[in-house]
Amino acid sequence: MLKSNPGLALCILIAIGAICFALFSGDPYYVQVVIWVFANAALAVTLRFVLLIGELNIATAAFFGIGAYTTAVASTILGWPFFISLLAAPVIAGVISSLFGWITLRTKGPYFLLISFAFTEIVRLIYTKTEALGGNSGMIGMFPPMELDAYFPAIAISILAAILFGLYAAERSNLGRVFKAIKNNEDIPRSVGLNVIGLKILCLVIASTAVGLVGGVHAYTNSVIAPADFTYFVAVLALAYVKIGGEGHIVGPIIGATILTLAGQFLHSFGPYENIFYGAIIIGALLLVPGGIVGLGVRFKAGTLMGRAGR
């Protein structure tokens, strides 16, 4: 399989390289940046996974937060061991998302977009009003156990990379094809006897489980979480990664996340100009490069880069 797919082989090599970098590099800052890149890539890829069925799921941000809070509660309040706390995150996120999907996926398009937006803000409101979850200031003290501490960055990157490869495999499977068929015209899969709503819920649950795990990793990486980390803005940035990288292929969001995360490191000092920059880059990418970087690559391959006519 790898011989016929050099791109995949290259991605595996990059992932292994990143894990080795985390194991052997002496500079914690750069290791942290690599983890951010992988975490943002995973966020963007999970957002894109629900785009496969044609829905824009702002609640990606909510399930990211639910995962992080689950791990935080499991490790600090309940005192569960490291790996179990980490695994609780995708489980809880998956359960809540199945309920959320069961209710909301009867709608689609703009309604689903708005509902998932409102859900994200409401979940955040619940954190701020719950004393046990630390209210506005959030929760602290999620640390990996001492004996694993040195290896934690490598573990985090391995988990995040596994999520990326897992979602790639899911997209390439028959299930992934059915998801795309639903996006194209959901009446056709329905006409051959498929339970379209059930499949949509499954798609949402897969993505939310994955992003819940990303949230769990985030809780341990940061050791501090607060409601303000989980606004709808998380999904907006994820969408920016998807759009800039290109949504036609799964590497698009990964490339987008890498570029913008690295660029963001330089922009943190700019205050209000940071948002202006992000706004401008999002608008620019949308209007000038509709297919994203991957789209540019495809056009370049086809030799039509210069001869593009309109949108």
Binding site: L113, L239, P272, N275, G279, A280, L286
Partner: peptide, 18 residues
């Protein structure tokens, strides 16, 4: 829908920053 969402979010950031 998706394109306009992104555009309006971009505008939101740009205008609020301004």
């Amino acid at each position: 829908l998706n394109g306009s969402f992104i555009l309006s979010i971009g505008l939101l950031l740009l205008l609020n920053g301004t």
